[in-house]
């Protein structure tokens, strides 16, 4: 088991090495242009107006909350899916319908509240 995950570790090191090499080699061999203007932020050829780091309405905040709820739901569904064939009787199915139904109700509530409209 540990040996398997050592491969995961190995490949993460490999990816870091790969990106390092391909970004360092151009620094050594690429020609460099001189000038101040090349370092300005791109804004379709105009002088950039102000920072991009300002407050603005993200809109996705409520959607993100909904995502967290559903992600945790899926997280609980995975163990259930793994043992599903061993469970006998429809009662286990109704239990999961109840569980999914509560969250589906949250989705319907958010829908009716207009979270998905903008």
């Amino acid at each position: 088991m540990l040996e398997s995950y050592s491969y995961v570790f190995l490949f993460s090191i490999l990816s870091v090495i790969f990106v390092s090499i391909v970004t360092i080699v151009p620094k050594l061999i690429a020609p460099k242009a001189i000038g101040e203007k090349k370092l300005t932020t791109y804004e379709c050829g105009e002088e950039p107006i102000g920072d991009a780091w300002i407050q603005f309405n993200v809109r996705y905040y409520l959607v993100a909350l909904l995502f967290v709820a559903f992600d945790v739901e899926v997280f609980f569904l995975i163990p259930w899916a793994m043992v599903f064939k061993d469970l006998t009787g429809l009662i286990f199915w109704f239990e999961i319908v109840l569980f999914v139904g509560i969250l589906a109700f949250a989705l319907i509530y958010a829908w009716a509240k207009g979270v998905f409209e903008w």
């Binding site: 970004t23 080699v25 151009p26 690429a30 242009a33 090349k38 370092l39 932020t41 920072d51």
Partner: peptide
């Protein structure tokens, strides 16, 4: 071609995160 191109880091960026 891309290996022979200069990697530009614009002056406004957060350098560490950008890299």
């Amino acid at each position: 071609k891309l290996i022979a191109k200069e990697i530009i880091t614009p002056k406004g960026v957060d350098k560490k995160l950008f890299a």
